[in-house]
């Protein structure tokens, strides 16, 4: 069996088991996994830039936020239906990524991290500043009309946990397909080439700035899709979702699961979510777990779980 077939089989199996999971999970975990799936999409978007292109952003909360506010504000103020609000959210994320990319991609390494961090901080302040529309930190609750939508002749109730779970799973499947396509295709190889040696890639005749910009665009759009879905499914938008915590989380999920692997961020999100959920039963300082995991990862497992597995056993893992 070729590597391509193996990887398709593996990721198909992952999606299938996630689909099957909803029939065996107790109610609370079904709700929790819905959140995890969306956060995993966010992490996959992040991974596209960090894992494959080698650009470490500390400001991805702004893309998550762009999706959240793009979708949420249009649904709240303009009464847009859920599918169009969702698309607008994704478009907002892509547009923001384009604008940020034109500026921030002129830097690399540490400077890129700080620039993205700062721009994201501006985004947070903007959600507070334009309080007439956003209600700032207090945020907005999605209207009744945005809790269901009709598509393909079927009315989908966002208040229904099973619908939500499967919509989140569909989004994850789309993100996974995009990532697989990137990872295995020409574009993905160009990204990795930029990551490994940008100067050499440029000398080989690639326009590395454009490659990086495309990666950021795609990454921003996927992250925004997660944000938009999070707003629409859980019916709330607020500025706390644009704080730095939401820039660090996808980094953490990606590092834990394995940067530069398609399924790594999903695994990382699962583990971290339950680790924090469990830790909060033992201690008030549940974020302590986040800190310890970060340090341990950097020290002992810099490639994350799937990264280590790929190194040792499954060389074909995309």
């Amino acid at each position: 069996m070729g590597d391509g077939a193996k990887s398709l089989l593996l990721h198909g199996a992952i999606l299938l088991s996630l689909f099957g999971l909803q029939f065996v999970l107790p109610e609370y975990h079904q709700l929790a996994v819905t959140r995890i799936l969306l956060l995993a999409v966010f992490a996959m978007g992040y991974n596209l830039l960090f894992g494959y292109t080698g650009l470490l952003s500390l400001g991805h909360a702004m893309f998550f936020g762009a999706g959240m506010y793009g979708a949420g504000l249009s649904a709240y103020h303009l009464g847009w239906a859920v599918p169009s609000a969702m698309l607008l959210g994704v478009a907002c994320g892509a547009l923001l990524a384009l604008l940020v990319g034109l500026v921030a991609l002129r830097t690399t390494g540490v400077a890129f991290m700080i620039v993205t961090l700062m721009i994201s901080q501006v985004g947070y302040l903007a959600t507070v500043y334009f309080t007439t529309w956003t209600r700032g930190d207090e945020g907005l609750v999605m209207p009744e009309a945005a809790r269901s939508f009709t598509l393909f002749g079927h009315t989908w109730l966002l208040t229904d946990p099973v619908t939500r779970y499967n919509l989140a799973l569909i989004l994850l499947a789309i993100a996974m397909a995009v990532l697989l396509w990137v990872a295995r295709g020409r574009f993905g190889r160009a990204l990795v080439a930029v990551r490994e040696n940008e100067d050499r890639t440029r000398m080989l005749g690639y326009h590395t700035f454009v490659i990086k910009l495309k990666a950021l665009l795609l990454s921003g759009a996927v992250s925004a899709a997660a944000g938009a879905a999070y707003a629409l499914m859980f019916a709330y938008i607020g500025s706390s979702f644009t704080t730095i915590q939401y820039s660090i989380d996808p980094l953490l999920y990606t590092l834990l699961g394995g940067a530069g692997t398609v399924a790594g961020p999903v695994l990382g999100t699962f583990l971290m979510f339950y680790l924090v959920d469990y830790a909060s039963e033992l201690t008030n300082a549940y974020l302590l777990v986040t800190g310890i995991v970060l340090v341990v990862l950097v020290l002992f497992f810099p490639r994350g779980i799937l990264g280590a597995i790929r190194e040792r056993w499954l060389r074909w893992l995309p």
Binding site: V110, T283, N284, Y286, L288, T290, G291, V295
Partner: peptide
């Protein structure tokens, strides 16, 4: 880059230990 991630980890550890 590893240092940034590690110091983010240290940030949480110090902050949360202070909380405790």
């Amino acid at each position: 880059e590893a240092t940034i991630v590690a110091t983010i980890g240290m940030l949480y550890i110090i902050q949360q230990t202070t909380l405790l």
